[in-house]
Design a binder for these strands. Structure first.
Length: 957
RNA sequence: ACUCGGGUGGUGGAACUGGUAGACACGCAGGACUUAAAAUCCUGUUCGCAGUAAUGCGAGUGACGGUUCAAUUCCGUUCCCGAGUACCA
């Protein structure tokens, strides 16, 4: 009987489906384990071999955990809102829901072919109204919550309202609050809500009449069409993720992410500790008139991480967009300042990055150093960013590279406060110098002086400690169609949330997916949908108003939520996917708790992973779930790149030259056949489908059919009668003809081979180019395994004889190794372990059920179909999924004596067989008696003899 | 520029806390079976030198140096590749 993998796999996939063997229950006496994959966006292109890498790894681990006695949740779903479907709709008029539906069906069929153990009854789709109902619901929770700074957690906004009504706050009294209009109250509250709306800058493309996401803007122009993009202020929704900066940072200590992943998140959050320092400012005119600016009580505040360098400040730089610029510019400098500000406005981010010119403009104002009264010029320059810190800095050229260059460029005198550490050639950012020219800080070590300087500033009321974050609040609205609509109605400038009963607010039908007016999204085109009359209890905003219900005209929010909205909480929905009354039953989320193992790519390091961590924290704060970190362990799978193949075509001709022949000599026959005189010709490299190349050798017959026979009449200049292709590693993509379809591999070698080969390729975390060549090796292994049970001619060969110790030893060594390898996600070495085991059993001609049965259980997670088939052939009735995981017998591996390598000064010289229970003294004697050791010793006594870890012996001369 | 990864045969990659570097597989070479092919099996395969041979000697994990009886592994310097961030004061 042969190994007919196609039949076997189809048979078992059907049986598993019929028997619902992957159905997961929320109650079980077993301990739980939650394995999650980052769910895919169902693109039209379908899966290529790069996608399933992580899914295979998680599937193996889920099955392994199940065998080890856990109740395992391993779900799959689709992140089905997103731009490509909308773009496709724009081009073809097909509704995104239709194409999405179709794509999902393709994905599911492909996934099922590989034999994953998903419980499809738990599938979630972010674009399903029954799902996004709860995305909207959580959004309303975010909207109706604020971050309490004293408790460092989210609380219902009502708590804040109550506080304002009874105590007021530092800006207004209780009486003032109660006298505010509803709009004024709402504006105050909006500044505290976790989901809030404000005017913010967006990338506006006039030509396309739409707002673009950052990644749709390339080099200052739109990715599609290449139209110019400018910054425009529009009302936008945001998530107050900055409020959670500290907790997001602290939470990293409690989760098992890779160091680089944690580092990326830390960098993104960008916490820095420093101080805000206030400078008085005087404006000087050439007429001699000078005015001290008193319009603000703190006219100019800068942020610095190096307050101890305060005596080294030679100028102050303010961001050109800073509010103060207009106020402080002198009459004389006004024109220059305006011109500079206009110049900066004209420059896109990309311009700035492309040419880092030193630019700036003096304002005519001077800041007064609060300690020594020195007057220092105030400049504006684009190198200071309006959005970070206070938008103004104190420049210390002797210690900061950028300040130094600026000072040099504009000839500003530099004060040296670090003595010999500063050479005048370049800035030195050391903290180890002794301060000079620094008033009361003189002769202090810089890092010690930091605290002293801030203390003094706080004492004098001219500065205070301040922590800043690089992270910004996350933009939460998109001017798009294919996303969750906001459950918000605007009325008189007030955002009114829908009631929970009104959810889901479903996406309405649109006739066009093009942008709406004024940069609004497509939804703005549907007047009937946008304009609503709403019954709104007017007392919600002001308890002093008499209760009552009035009819209020409103206008719906027309933007939709971004892609990450639905993916920020999907791991919770899997726990209780069909709950119509709650986003997730608390019992279910308490049971499944955190995701024990989360597998996905690094590309979501600072997006999805931060947002979902924040949402989890908010839900935790509001008491809706019982933990505040969603993912206990994160495993990052590497990217599988494509390995592209190239052929080289003679320019303008249908002739292809094998690379090594280019510029070489041509034979008479070739010359006649092709009409070429020599091979010193211009060639163009051209992508050729990797599937018609065997290694690097082009399959010429198939190439002639490539691109519908475009090259049917091509001529070739070969080497050794073969055409060798050029190779390059690139991203896998259809247009590069380097994609390999998993379906075809499953068809040709079987899903089990495919699964094991993907793992065998290397560590899951590593990125590597795909190469189909080695797959034969894995396939051979499975066939060899099959032959331990069945002979192609004789049929069944397995038997029920008793296994020998040697055979059991092979088995138990394998059990031990597989458990270690699987446990530390080293799936590639596990595959090798299986190969070694099967090779050894085959060598021993061991066909014994006793051994083979256990081996099958070990193999189940990796190659479930063949394991299940052989398991049933052995006469077992149930599914191998519920088999008992074999226990490793350590006693079997113990030997009575062992051969130890003996090295002299670390260099291997001989071997020595010793009994196991031998002690150090006996070892020494036996080693000294050894001939070869004696030869090396030449009569000298060794310094010492080291018996290392029961593994080897080293003699030190 | 900064931060984090990583450099091991012709190739993908093993070597878990320092302990016989190159497991396993691909490829390649040779052989067996076969009329032939496929399939299968066996042998060899880091490099250099010596030998008919079994084998022996030496070098070897990007480069240089250090710690150690012993370094792919730890430390320092340096080069290269990948990822992320980018004027964050």
């Amino acid at each position: 009987m042969e190994y007919k993998f196609n039949e076997i796999e189809q048979k078992w996939q059907e049986q598993w489906k019929k028997g619902k063997v992957y159905k997961v229950y929320n109650d079980s006496p077993k301990p739980k384990y939650y394995v999650l994959d980052m769910f895919p966006y169902p693109s039209g292109a379908g899966l290529h071999v790069g996608h399933p890498l992580g899914y295979i790894a998680s599937d193996i681990f889920s099955r392994y955990k199940r065998l080890k006695g856990f109740n395992v949740l391993h779900p799959m779903g689709f992140d089905s809102f997103g731009l490509p479907a909308e773009q496709y709709a724009l081009e073809t008029g097909q509704h995104p829901a239709t194409t999405t539906e179709k794509n999902i069906a393709t994905f599911k069929a492909q996934l099922d072919k590989i034999g994953f153990c998903y419980d499809w009854e738990r599938e979630v789709r972010t674009s399903d109204p029954q799902y996004y109902k709860w995305t909207q619901w959580i959004f309303l929770k975010l909207y109706n919550s604020y971050f309490c700074n004293t408790q460092q957690k989210a609380r219902p906004i009502e708590d804040l309202i109550t506080k304002y009504e009874t105590q007021g706050n530092k800006n207004f009294t209780r009486e003032q609050w109660n006298a505010f209009t509803k709009k004024e109250q709402e504006d105050v509250l909006m500044n505290r809500r976790l989901a809030f709306s404000k005017y913010g800058e967006v990338n506006w493309c006039e030509a396309l009449g739409t707002v673009l996401a950052n990644d749709e803007v390339v080099n200052g122009v739109s990715e599609r069409g290449g139209h110019p993009v400018v910054k425009k202020k529009m009302r936008q929704w945001y998530l107050r993720i900055t409020a959670y900066a500290d907790r997001l940072l602290a939470g990293l200590e409690t989760v098992d992410f890779s160091d680089s992943m944690k580092e990326m998140q830390r960098n993104w959050i960008g916490k820095s500790e420093g101080a805000e320092v206030t400078f008085k400012v005087v404006k000087r005119e050439s007429s001699g008139v000078s005015t001290e600016l008193t319009t603000h009580h703190s006219p100019l505040t800068v942020y610095t991480t190096r307050p101890e360098t305060i005596f080294g400040v030679d100028f102050v730089v303010v961001a050109p967009e800073h509010d103060l610029v207009n106020e402080i510019k002198s009459a004389e400098q006004a024109a220059a300042v305006d011109e500079y500000v206009a110049y900066v406005k004209s420059r896109s981010d990309v311009d700035r990055m492309a040419e880092k010119k030193i630019t700036g403009c003096f304002t005519g104002a001077y800041a007064i150093n609060p300690f020594d009264g020195k007057e220092i010029p105030v400049w504006i320059s684009e190198y200071v960013l309006a959005g970070y810190g206070t938008g103004a800095i104190m420049a210390v050229p002797c210690g900061d590279e950028r300040d130094f260059k600026f000072a040099q460029h504009f000839n500003i005198a530099i004060t040296n406060i670090i003595g010999s550490h500063y050479t005048g050639e370049e800035a030195n950012p050391t903290k180890e110098a002794i301060l000079e020219n620094s008033g009361f800080l003189n002769s202090l070590l810089m890092k010690d002086a930091i605290g002293i300087a801030v203390n003094k500033m706080e004492e004098l009321g001219i500065g205070k400690r301040k922590v800043n974050y690089r992270m910004r609040d996350a933009g939460f609205s998109r001017q798009r169609y294919w996303g969750e609509p906001f459950p918000i109605v605007w009325s008189d400038g007030i955002a009114i949330p829908l009631d929970a009963e009104e959810l889901p607010l479903e996406l309405p039908h649109v006739d066009t997916y093009g942008p709406g007016p004024e940069g609004e999204g497509p939804l703005a085109n549907i007047k009937d949908w946008v304009d609503v009359g709403r019954n709104t209890p007017c007392g919600v905003f002001n308890t002093n108003t008499p209760q009552g219900v009035i009819l209020q005209k409103g206008r719906r929010e027309t933007s939709t939520m971004p892609g990450y909205a639905g993916s920020s909480w999907y791991f919770l929905r899997y726990m209780d996917p069909n709950n119509a009354n709650e986003f997730c039953d608390r019992k279910a989320s308490d049971y499944w708790n955190q995701v024990d193992l989360y597998i996905g790519g690094t590309e979501h390091a600072v997006g999805h992973l931060l947002y979902s961590r924040m949402w989890t924290k908010v839900l935790f704060d509001l008491g809706l779930i019982g933990y505040d970190e969603p993912f206990k362990k994160l495993l990052n799978q590497g990217m599988i790149q494509g390995s592209s193949r190239f052929v080289y075509r003679v320019r303008g001709r249908n002739i292809f030259i094998s690379p090594n022949r280019i510029n070489g000599s041509i034979t008479e026959e070739e010359s006649q056949r092709t009409g070429l005189v020599d091979l010193k010709v211009e060639v163009d490299p051209m992508h050729v489908d990797v599937n018609i190349v065997d290694g690097v050798e082009l399959k010429i017959a198939e190439f002639k059919k490539f691109k519908n026979g475009e090259y049917a009449n091509a001529e070739f200049i070969l080497e050794d009668d073969k055409y060798f292709c050029g190779v390059e590693t690139e991203k896998m993509s259809k247009s590069k003809y380097n994609t390999v379809n998993p379906d075809e591999l499953c068809e040709k070698y079987g899903a089990d081979t495919f699964r094991m080969y993907e793992m065998f390729l290397g560590p899951v975390e590593a990125s590597k180019p795909w190469d189909t060549k080695g797959i034969e090796g894995v396939h051979r292994f499975l066939r060899k395994l099959w032959r331990l049970f069945n002979d192609d001619l004789k049929g069944k060969v397995w038997n029920e004889e008793k296994a020998t110790d040697a055979e059991l030893k092979v088995l138990h060594r394998t059990i031990k190794k597989i458990e270690e390898d699987t446990g530390r996600f080293s799936f590639n070495t596990a595959v090798s372990t299986f190969m070694i085991c099967v090779n050894e059993l085959a060598d021993m001609k061991c066909n014994k059920k006793e051994v083979l049965e256990k081996l099958l259980i070990l193999l189940t997670p990796y190659a479930p179909h063949i394991a299940e088939e052989l398991w049933s052939q052995l006469g077992n009735s149930g599914s191998i999924l519920d088999a008992e995981y074999p226990e490793f017998n350590a006693a079997l591996l113990v030997e009575s004596s062992k051969e130890y390598p003996v090295s002299i000064n670390g260099k291997l010289r001989t071997n020595l067989t010793l009994a196991l229970d031998i002690d150090q003294k006996e070892v020494e004697e036996l080693v000294l008696q050894n001939e070869i050791v004696q030869k090396w010793l030449e009569g000298n006594a060794p310094k010492k003899i080291i018996f290392v870890k029961n593994k080897m012996i080293n003699v030190v001369l």
